[in-house]
Nucleic acid binder design. Structure first.
Length: 551
RNA sequence: GCCCCCGUAGCUCAGUUGGAUAGAGCGAGUGCCUUCUAAGCACGAGGUCGCAGGUUCGAGUCCUGCCGGGGGCACCA
């Protein structure tokens, strides 16, 4: 019996109580089922009676008793107690609890997926780093988190498009081209230009392909540096993202959007909605109508579009492609954008509370020996995604960036995350999976199979109950992580599950010792172990972290 | 000055969207391997949930103010 099944059973019991005249309320569609921290409070607890006390006009404990009487008729439920202010503490029968392993094994990689968000067409935009440099540490947090969130939303049934906004038009790209040319000529980088090993590396490649470029007229040279520099940079970005396990469905080119006249179209639409005005020779959007700090310029007095104009057009483009939920993942240094993005949404006549969601991620620092870490070989202090992967590997890097709330700034202790010990959370979780895989291999060698079925009531040890209960939580963890846009919940859950498994493993021998024969308990436990493996693998998969069979 | 985020055990952080006695891990202590991976497990100490009010049956969680830390407030991108 899953928590969801139990919730339905409680709702049914409430309906039965109402039908029997024991309770005068409108039965709720669903109730909250909790897994209590304290096992004295049963396998599961619900506060349904506390919620219904007011509409029923009766003390919570009375309501609880009325529900409990009807709940006790279920054969899956071993005990129901009314406790505290009116909680219902429910203990499942061993058989009902043990059934879960079968359900999980049968579902396999689908266990944890649901159709909770099936009505949502989500556009998930993340990373969107300018193609003027490699992916740095801050972007890397979003690469890990955005990709994980995409997987989690998909698991929850949402129709997700992962998108990278390519800022390939405008001043930054011009500066990049100028910086490349300066590097090629051995000149100093221009003011506000780009510096670093990667700039000279790309410049060298372009010079190699166009030996005459250093003697070419400046405009002609810049055009080549601009076009090819961006291509090479983007290729490098895509390569490092791919190595990190991150794939986008759409790389959305700002330049292409401009070429299609979408900026003019967006401005016309905003004008039609009545939020555009002219002042000091510039064209403005009156975002203060919708709570922004100040109005924003769309087109400068010199006729150039602002970056913000792109935001407006891009928003409209996404909406016209049918997305009703636009999720933007931004760094803390961009949190000032929230107001204007919401205002853009409202200016087009949409609902900023529904159509636009902005997730703000706090900053990431690396620590080594308790001190801020710097790349020693380089003058620059910027740390790239590839540096982090070199230091920790993809699994540890992704996991380290995914296990914390986006609200909290994170200090990644390189010593800790590079460790091959249980101090390192990702190893702790992966080790549980490897340990299970090893056990299952041993079972095969001993010629023991779990068979087509097992007796679920044999999974009656306390550690088995704990493990089953933990496995049963997984679908709810996934849906809550999806609904709250909080991938770290999956990581924390996996750590807890790994611990629960290790305790089970310590307490319950699975395979027979010596010449002993395999028993029904052996087979029942093999189902439970395989179910655990499935959940660990599915959960790690949601984070884009591998589930190794050997370590 | 205004806006956003944070403040929970010595350290790093969770806290099931308002529930029962606030939890893990690390650090430090003591045990547990002649058989499934000891990269593991078991046993304890450690707290005014920044402070002060408020909302209610009930607040770490919601509201207000204050203190402290981080980040941000362009006709830049």
């Amino acid at each position: 019996m899953t928590p969801a099944d139990l919730a339905e059973a409680v709702v049914s019991a409430i309906r039965a109580a109402v039908d029997a005249g024991d309770l005068a309320v409108t039965p709720p569609d669903s109730v909250v089922i909790e897994r209590p921290k304290n096992r004295d409070h049963g396998d599961y607890a619900t506060n349904a009676a506390l919620q219904l006390a007011k509409p029923a006009g009766r003390p919570p404990r009375d309501v609880a008793e009325a529900i409990a009487a009807h709940l006790r008729t279920s054969t899956s439920i071993a005990a129901v107690e009314v406790a505290g202010p009116g909680f219902l503490n429910i203990t499942l029968s061993d058989a009902a609890q043990g059934e879960l392993a079968r359900l999980i094994v049968a579902a396999g990689s689908a266990y944890g997926t649901s159709d909770t968000l099936s009505k949502e067409k989500v556009n998930l935009e993340f990373v969107s780093a300018n193609p003027t440099g490699p992916i740095h540490l801050g972007h890397t947090r979003w690469a890990a988190l955005g990709d994980a969130l995409g997987r989690i939303l998909t698991a929850a049934g949402a129709d997700v498009t992962r998108e990278y906004y390519l800022n390939d038009a405008g001043v930054q790209v011009d500066r990049f081209a100028e910086s490349l040319r300066a590097a090629a000529l051995g000149h100093e980088a221009p003011e506000d230009g780009y510096v670093g090993d990667y700039v000279t590396a790309i410049a060298d490649r372009i010079v190699a392909a166009h030996p005459d470029i250093t003697t070419m007229a400046e405009p002609d040279a810049l055009a080549i540096f601009r076009r090819e520099g961006m291509e090479l940079m983007l290729a490098e970005i895509r390569k490092s993202l791919a190595e990190f396990g991150v794939e986008f469905d759409v790389y959305f080119s700002e330049q292409a959007m401009r070429d299609k006249g979408e900026l003019d179209a967006a401005l016309a639409s905003l004008r039609a909605h009545g939020h555009v005005f002219e002042q000091d020779g510039a064209v403005w959007l009156r975002t203060t109508d919708f709570g922004d700090d100040k109005d924003r310029v769309v087109r400068k007095s010199d006729g150039e579009w602002t970056y913000f104009a792109g935001d407006c057009a891009y928003y409209l483009d996404k909406r016209e492609r049918g997305f009703d939920r636009l999720i933007y993942m931004l760094g803390a240094d961009h949190h000032g954008y929230v107001g204007r993005l919401k205002a853009v949404c409202a200016s087009f006549g949409d609902d900023p509370d529904k159509n636009v969601e902005v997730l703000i991620g706090q900053l990431v620092n690396l620590l080594k020996d308790g001190e801020p870490f710097r790349m020693s070989k380089r003058a620059g202090t910027i740390i790239w995604m590839t540096d982090l992967v070199d230091l920790l590997g993809v699994d540890a890097a992704r996991y380290a960036l995914s296990r914390y709330s986006t609200d909290s700034p994170i200090d990644i202790d390189l010593d800790l995350w590079a460790k091959q010990t249980s101090d390192n959370p990702v190893f702790y979780v992966q080790y549980a999976h490897a340990r299970i895989s090893s056990l299952l291999r041993n079972a095969v060698e001993l010629g023991i199979t779990r068979g087509d079925d097992y007796d679920p009531s044999l999974l009656a040890e306390p550690q088995e109950g704990e493990l089953l209960g933990a496995l049963g939580e997984f679908p709810r963890v996934v849906t809550s992580a999806a609904e709250l846009r909080e991938p770290h919940r999956v990581a924390r859950y996996l750590e807890s599950l790994a611990g629960t498994y290790h305790r089970f493993y310590d307490a319950c021998r699975v395979l027979p010792m010596g010449d002993e024969p395999a028993t029904d308990t052996t087979r029942a436990r093999l189902w439970l172990v395989e179910a655990t493996r499935v959940v660990l693998a599915n959960g790690l998969g949601l984070l884009g972290v591998s589930a190794p069979e050997r370590m």
